[in-house]
């Protein structure tokens, strides 16, 4: 991992108009940097905007405000070849290995599609490249001419990874790549992702709700709540010296597979549910569930500020310790 920033998200907003209800601020003024060769974990509960952020980065959505910079260049300012180049360099792996593959195409077609679009590897080289990719993800060449329904969930996710890797990307947005898999298969796919990262110096934006897994693989972790990043720090700091009350609640809610540890743990159970993300007020989005909320929290929104080097928190009360 280097300190060179490969992808930067600056003050990004993505809002959706919900008919008759108002505006859903799915991503609200989010900024983050992805370093070369790094894994940045992006965690949060359903509806927090983590997937929307990932999709905005790969240009599935057009942001309402803010920028996405790749190698310092705004991706929405470039057209033609430069735009195509961006799509080659930033790929995505999807959550559902069943829905993300075309059921009517054999997998060599799905994997090779990107190669054709970008004019890479033609003729025999294209064929060899597909077989090489299959091998890289732990499948073999007999699999090339099979249809998605002939594969298990874990194998399909490998195919999704092969497809993303085909065009030699530098950044991969992984959107819950292992959530649909059984635990023993999750570990297989994670090992694959880690190995590929080392071999190809890939940078991952790893979107997940699985906080145990994300700790194991991430260099840094960003915690999202209702469209905003509430805390960002390197992985160990986030788990041992977290400052935001939501991070504390989230971490204490994860059960640890160890009865003795669980017996001794004190758990901070949040009351209530996630409030509706539509038409949020001016205050801190977490104020309605926060055990430490004061008047200031309901009135003004805390900014993400650097408390210690590399440790960012958006909380009025974090400074008080």
């Amino acid at each position: 991992m280097t300190d060179r920033v490969i992808l930067e998200v600056k003050d990004l907003c993505k809002h959706f108009a919900v008919k008759g209800k108002g505006v859903l601020r799915a991503v609200d003024h989010v900024s983050l940097q992805l370093h070369e060769g790094e894994t940045l974990g992006l965690v949060g509960e359903s509806g927090c905007g983590k997937t929307t952020l990932g999709r905005t980065i790969v240009k599935i959505y057009r942001p309402d405000a803010g920028q996405v910079l790749y190698e310092g260049r705004d991706i929405w300012q470039q057209k033609g070849r430069a735009d195509l180049e961006y799509h080659k360099n930033v790929q995505m792996i999807f959550q559902d290995p069943y829905a993300s593959l075309d059921p009517l195409s054999v997998i060599s077609t799905s994997i090779g599609e990107g190669l054709d679009i970008h004019g890479m590897y033609k003729g025999k080289a294209r064929h060899d490249r597909i077989l090489e990719l299959l091998q890289m993800v732990g499948l073999n060449k007999e699999h090339a001419n099979r249809f998605p329904h002939e594969f298990s969930g874990g194998q399909r996710q490998r195919i999704g990874i092969a497809r993303a890797l085909a065009v030699e990307p530098r950044v991969i947005v992984c959107d819950e790549p292992i959530s649909a898999l059984d635990v023993s298969i999750q570990a297989q796919v994670m090992n694959l992702l880690v190995r590929l990262q080392d071999e190809m110096k890939l940078s991952y934006l790893f979107i997940t709700h699985d906080l145990s897994m994300v700790r194991a693989i991430s260099n840094r972790i960003a915690v999202m709540y209702l469209g905003s990043i509430v805390e960002l720090a390197d992985a160990d700091t986030l788990y041992t010296h977290h400052l935001h009350p939501y991070t504390s609640a989230l971490l204490s809610a994860i059960p640890i597979p160890d009865p003795d540890v669980e017996e001794k743990r004190s758990r901070m159970i949040l009351s209530g549910d996630l409030p509706s993300p539509i038409g949020l007020g001016a205050g801190c989005p977490f104020a309605s569930r926060c055990p430490r909320a004061k008047d200031v929290c309901r009135q003004s929104r805390p900014m993400l500020t650097e408390m210690e080097k590399g440790h960012f928190v958006a909380c009025h009360r974090a400074k008080e310790g």
Partner: peptide
């Protein structure tokens, strides 16, 4: 094969082949 919240970073997960 289950990662634990109270374990530090690792680059290699045990898995069932």
């Amino acid at each position: 094969s289950v990662p634990r919240l109270d374990q530090k970073q690792r680059r290699n997960f045990t898995f069932i082949p």
